[in-house]
Simulated assay, not measured.
Amino acid sequence: MTSTRSAHESATPVAQSGELFAPVSSGVELCYQTFGDPDADPLLLVMGLGGPMTWWDPDLCRLLAERGFFVIRYDNRDTGRSSRVGGRVSRTTLVRAFLGAPVRAPYDISDMARDATGLLDHLGIDSAHVVGVSMGGMIAQTLAIEEPSRVRSLTSIMSTTGKRTVGWQNPSLFPALIGGRGPSREAYVKASAAMWRMIGSPAYPQPAEETRARAEETYDRGVSASGVLRQMLAILTQPNRGARLRSVKVPTLVIHGLADKMVHVSGGRATAAAVPGAELLLVDGMGHDMPPALFETFTAAIRRNADRA
């Protein structure tokens, strides 16, 4: 996940909306933004844990628009400028869920998938190509399973099936994930930079000033520590989708970095193995982010997969 600006400049200006809002369910309003021609192929981008829509780099969004997509990025519930959802989640509850004990979550991945369909409804879009990163991949997979008529093609990036024996986190990350980032802007920025140093792509290191700029933008648009915990619990309590993924009939692309510490590459391999005919693209030196050096690779693969629809 990244919001780093690359050197790419569009030869032809791509239309870009401001930040807009869509009521998608009772009490939930999503902030979203679009790139490109509304008559082009709709492409819905779904971000991961605690990540606002701005982690979809605008340069990547413009590249996708240039390839014939109407690109829609949005803040998930409990993220950025979208609605905050009630329900307290303690760190003790997270640990219990991590260990497999039964717990009750304020919402689940299916609820977040319904947010996505609500956004499509708001935009008058019957179906879209769907691309999800990390938790967003879980949401995208769930959408393809539960609302197959709404998904034209599926791209799952650095994600997993929900099976506990695949796609695990490196144990060294868990303290940082549940430890909080402090209430101040500077504390958040420092903790965020430290996390990206741990999970970023070793072959494509991000300049410190760009990591800091992303964290500052994320904080300024709105962060919710309690929201991150609610999303994390939705991840920890998700079902194993392996068997149900066999019902997915749309063209499917799975992208995963071989150096991913947040979601082990076994999660990507399991996802590709579960979906009939899925393409698996493994990237050397890629961690749990989307480096600008790989934007052309991602764009070409997503377009190729969509063209199979």
Rank of each mutant, 00 (worst) to 15 (best):
A300C: 09
S226Q: 14
M47E: 08
D75M: 09
E209D: 14
G137P: 01
I109N: 14
Y32R: 02
G162D: 06
R152Y: 04
M53R: 07
A97L: 10
D289R: 06
R114Y: 12
R91P: 08
T299A: 14
L253P: 02
L99M: 12
T161P: 03
P291T: 05
M53D: 07
G118C: 12
S10G: 03
G227A: 05
G124S: 08
P106L: 03
W196Q: 14
E296T: 15
A234Y: 03
L281D: 09
H264S: 15
R214T: 15
M158D: 11
M290H: 03
V228Q: 13
V283R: 04
E216I: 14
V95L: 14
V46A: 02
S159A: 01
D41L: 13
I72A: 09
L280Q: 05
A113K: 00
G132Q: 01
D115L: 06
D126A: 15
P202Q: 01
P148W: 05
R246Q: 14
L119I: 13
A105T: 13
T34M: 07
A194H: 01
P183F: 02
M1W: 06
L43M: 12
P58W: 00
D108T: 10
M53E: 06
Y204W: 13
V248N: 03
D39H: 12
S226D: 14
R5F: 10
T297Q: 12
L281Y: 05
R88V: 15
D289Y: 09
P207V: 00
A116Q: 06
S83M: 11
H129E: 03
P292S: 01
R230K: 03
V71Q: 08
A243Y: 02
M138I: 13
L20E: 15
M158W: 09
G167R: 11
L63S: 04
Y219F: 15
G167H: 08
L282F: 05
T161I: 10
R185Y: 10
Y219N: 06
L119A: 10
L45T: 06
K249Q: 14
D75Q: 08
S127W: 06
R303E: 02
R303V: 00
P23C: 03
L20Q: 15
G50L: 10
L258D: 09
E209A: 11
R152T: 12
E217W: 04
L245V: 08
P148R: 01
P239M: 01
S172A: 14
T4S: 11
G51N: 13
S3I: 00
G124D: 09
V189G: 04
A274N: 09
T211D: 14
S25Y: 04
K261G: 03
R114E: 15
A101H: 13
V275I: 12
T93A: 11
G162W: 02
A213Q: 11
A270F: 10
T165Q: 11
P175V: 05
